[in-house]
Design a binder for these strands. Structure first.
Lengths: 248, 248
DNA sequence: AAGTGGTCTAGACCACCCT
DNA sequence: GGGTGGTCTAGACCACTTT
């Protein structure tokens, strides 16, 4: 026989700075703290709650990070209103997401070949036209249906050619795991919207003209080396993203 | 005659915690710190750089916030690789954005009327079907062309009816500036993609079937009151969003 | 000059992880 | 038990803003 562990009420066991942050946040949600209001000086908050200044500042830092407060040196700490018509959206790493859901990505290769690079990808990767690069097309599937069309140019490394088997699995990071000098350190993304071409629609088992997210991607390795460029097309009928709300 | 103030090299004048954060960040960008590496214990970093533990922790907190480091209590602080296939995108408040660019938004009313609310918006706003609400359509223009189509249901307040002139200007926050109980405290957004209907295309001076961003919006006031619901359609040929990279 | 937030120190104890 | 990060204190000085 097994017992289910009762969830303990941990509200009162949490650190002082979290309690204070929650208290102030609740006061805002109840309309007691209003945009434009100035908070009491930090030392006064210390007295009120019986906390040291560092602890109080730790609480305020959370709320500043959330965008609820704004500090102005020499003037005070002020309540800021929420940005109602804009927000922050997280588009998660697709591979990582599927892995977390226990549905490993299937990414069969559509195309994988060595090409003489043309002007646009050459410029993006910062190499000369006509140099060789790997061109790659994949359809990423999760939950038994095609979801993302991935198209990439990858820098060619004669010292360690990539195998077809490697190209069909995992993200760029996984791909370069054994390339010490090519390990990604940064990725620049650009989010746009598009409609499916007939080829994309066929590969994604959808319909031409349907809307889709498009994410252009430039992958940087150490020392400002660009190692991959391409874009990913996300089926619009399968993806939507909530704005981020940071928990207290 | 005017002198241009030479920008002073402030690298060395910045606070110690920022210098330390930059140092570690640079080491990562140069490939000296690699994903999976464990940093030295905090006390050791203190000795190395001649700083107190609080200052070192302040530096590490920045890098944790950036996603470069991960702390594990009892184990250590570890370097995390970047998420190359996903990212964070900021879609700014359109009104705010235009104001910052010195191009105040023009938002002529297309429709503004009191309606008996139907099932879907009633459910979203948490009120009963058949209650009155304000229905609003606007085209937001900036830089001399229509960019966003905004459609909203707004809770009706008999005590303080909104004037047509007020509806044509500014965001929900501006609209409710004089409604103490309706001041927005939170906004839930949901980002999807769509194609323009013929009506939307006409209003936005575009073409039906063109792709567009769509942001559904639910605005909350104090005490869990929902005050507005609707969605905004952003012309796909005029908007694209880079992923956020937090500066050190 | 007074008040505010920004930075920093030296030291303490606790919670968690590993061996 | 030893090492690690997590929390917290009391106090100091500095930089900026306002009066």
């Amino acid at each position: 026989m097994e017992f289910v562990e009762e969830p303990v009420e941990r509200m009162d066991e949490s650190p002082a700075y979290q309690k204070l942050a929650r208290t102030l946040h609740n006061q805002f949600m109840e309309g007691k703290l209003r945009p434009g209001d100035r908070l009491p000086p930090e030392l006064e908050i210390c007295e009120t709650f019986g906390l040291s200044r560092i602890t109080v500042r730790q609480a305020l830092a959370i709320l500043v990070e959330q965008g609820l407060l704004r500090r102005e040196q020499g003037r005070g700490t002020f309540v800021v209103g929420p940005r109602v018509d804009g927000g922050v959206f997280v588009i998660p790493d697709f591979y990582e997401e599927m892995r977390l859901r226990g549905r490993p990505t299937i990414a069969p290769l559509i195309t994988a070949k060595l090409v003489m690079i043309t002007s646009i990808p050459a410029e993006k990767l910062g190499i000369v036209q006509g140099e060789p690069a790997i061109y790659l097309e994949r359809v990423l599937s999760g939950e038994d249906e095609p979801l993302v069309f991935d198209r990439k140019y990858i820098l060619y490394n004669p010292a360690r050619p990539l195998l077809e088997a490697e190209l069909g699995e995992g993200s760029i990071t996984d791909l370069f795991r054994e390339f010490p000098d090519w390990l990604p350190v940064k990725s620049d993304l650009y989010l746009t919207v598009t409609t499916l071409s007939s080829r994309e629609a066929e590969l994604l088992q959808s319909t031409p003209g349907k809307p889709a997210f498009c994410i252009e991607q430039l992958v940087w390795a150490a020392n400002d080396l660009r190692v991959a460029w391409g874009w990913m097309v996300y089926r619009g009928d399968r993806f939507g993203f909530p704005s981020m709300t940071r928990p207290i």
